[in-house]
Design a protein around this nucleic acid. Structure first.
Lengths: 316, 316
DNA sequence: GTCACCGTTGAAAGATATTTTCGTTTCGGT
DNA sequence: ACCGAAACGAAAATATCTTTCAACGGTGAC
């Protein structure tokens, strides 16, 4: 797990093939989101630094490494390490990004719906807060999505002989959603709901097939297991997870990172992770539909026609 | 004229009182203007530097003093002098300001998100457009939700003896999502996937029970039928639909309206309606959790605990 | 309970970048 | 052509950033 961290720190211009585009692009505005995503894989002092940075980009941009180290009660080394983990070559670049972020915030003044949902919030506030949160989640996800990985995943799925999608619980619904969509454009897809069935299915996969695992935590055994089997059988594997450093990525050829909103008692993580996952799934779907347009378009209208008679002529 | 320059260059940490807050505020975004204003008082090489900076803030922000000096065919000293003239304490600060400026320009550049998704859109555009669309859908939904109806629905669900949720296809997943959530807080809920089963279930309902129908079109027979049965048996009925004038509302005590984004070939209606429906479901859930907080909170943590062991100890 | 191991951390050395100093060059005026 | 003042850049001085490395602290094995 911290293996990944190590890797990032290791010789960065390795002569070997950088198969996986590990660290995303320097992150435009999705810094807060990135901090949240990566926080779990950070050490305590790094978290302090990350938090300070996310809390007050403008303020931190004004500080030198030493200053930020003192502010957070850590050392320069830790600050640099944090900057690296966040995807920048060094502190200097983080600082520049911070300045940019600060400028943006300055111009875009947030509406301050940041408070958490309380037990006694009137229903109207609940609606506003939830909507605001999900919108935020969408923006974060879009900003944090690695389009290279996404493109690779789309290519794999578009050319797959068959596709399995694994997911449990809330993620299971997302898995079903993806499956439904793939079926609609004439691809062969399954979303086994039962973990045993999933493994049984996975065993049948081979090169040319694709397996997709959807798990927010990145460490759901019931989902990792079938993915591992598929991986070992030679299928192309894709992980959609909120923890790009989680165990599931071991067996994933392509990793698509979903974003995480802060959660609370009345707002379980499942809620925002689902929103995020669905956006990723939608992107996959549209990407695939583009690639297979010739066959997807007729399939889409065919399924539309077939369903039409199931609706009463109820419109007016 | 160059008199000013001299003063600025003069001993800055003078032992005397630093009475003068030397240059103006670090200049927000009016950099180009400032360059123009001050150009006449600049020497030739300084003008070259200023010009480069005004032309391409983003590019220059990526350069070090030395880099910018080389680019403009001048020396580091000149670059620093220019930075001073422009009102910054030194090059470092100019660079920070440049980064901010670049970021603002970047965000201002509207990616023409209003257009539809085309077959040949690059994947990055697809992501941006989809995210933008779903965000729009959320805002619309939140704005259009009738909080009175929502409150009534919440009250009914919170006090229900049992709840049935009907949905088919994409809406079926939303139905399952609601069901999962209700189960998590200790309520009794079912989401029969089979239309026949749904009717069979509906027959069992009576006053004090609740039935929820989820259908975007508002005219899906397979969903209306069980709702009608439940309605006639005296259960409280709720419709979540994008067509508040559709047939389904005949049998609904409470109607919750979801919003619809324009659809297109590559972006089926199901996509945005699902987003909208999920927001409604989330609102219902949180509303119910608030009302039944005493029992919901423990139930939530209990289900969380029960699931914990299914995740490998993947985090630190 | 003790020990070994591994990850975390910061102090300090090392490398870069920035700022200042200062001598050379350029240019206008005489 | 000569003088002086301003412009300019090379290089020294300083500040900042990065890397190294040893010490610390926690965890699991025995």
């Amino acid at each position: 797990m911290t293996q990944d961290v190590k890797e990032i720190f290791a010789d960065r211009r390795g002569t070997g093939t950088p198969v996986r585009s590990v660290a995303a692009p320097p992150a435009p505005a999705a810094l807060a989101a990135k901090v949240r995503t990566l926080a779990p894989s950070m050490t305590r002092s790094m978290q302090r630094v990350a938090e300070a940075v996310a809390d007050d980009p403008a303020g931190c941009a004004a500080l030198t490494v030493t200053g930020l180290a003192e502010l957070t009660g850590t050392s320069e080394a830790t600050v640099v390490r944090t900057a690296r983990l966040l995807g920048y070559p060094g502190y200097r670049d983080l600082r520049l990004a911070l300045a940019g972020l600060a400028a943006q915030q300055e111009s875009g003044r947030a509406p301050a719906l940041t408070t958490d949902i309380a037990v006694d919030d009137p229903i109207a506030d609940v609606v506003a807060k939830l909507a605001h949160d999900e919108r935020q989640t969408l923006a974060d996800t879009a900003a944090g999505l690695d389009t290279v990985q996404l493109g690779a995943a789309v290519a794999a799925l578009a050319g797959a002989r068959r596709t399995d999608v694994y997911g449990i619980g809330a993620s299971g619904l997302v898995a079903q959603d993806l499956t439904q969509k793939l079926l609609r454009i004439g691809l062969i897809a399954h979303a086994p709901g039962d973990p045993h069935l999933a493994v049984t299915n996975a065993v049948q996969l081979r090169a040319g097939d694709v397996a997709v695992a959807i798990t927010h935590s990145g460490s759901t055994g019931d989902v990792i297991e079938p993915l591992r089997v598929a991986f070992e059988r030679g299928a192309t594997t894709i992980a959609v997870t909120g923890r790009p450093d989680g165990p599931v990525t071991q067996y994933a050829d392509h990793v698509l990172t979903t974003s995480t909103a802060r959660e609370s008692e009345l707002r379980p993580a499942a809620m925002s992770s689902r929103t995020s996952q669905l956006l990723v799934v939608d992107c996959l779907f549209v990407g695939i539909a583009q690639r297979t347009y010739a066959s997807a378009a007729p399939a889409l209208s065919a399924s539309y026609e077939a369903l039409a008679h199931r609706h009463r002529s109820g419109s007016r």
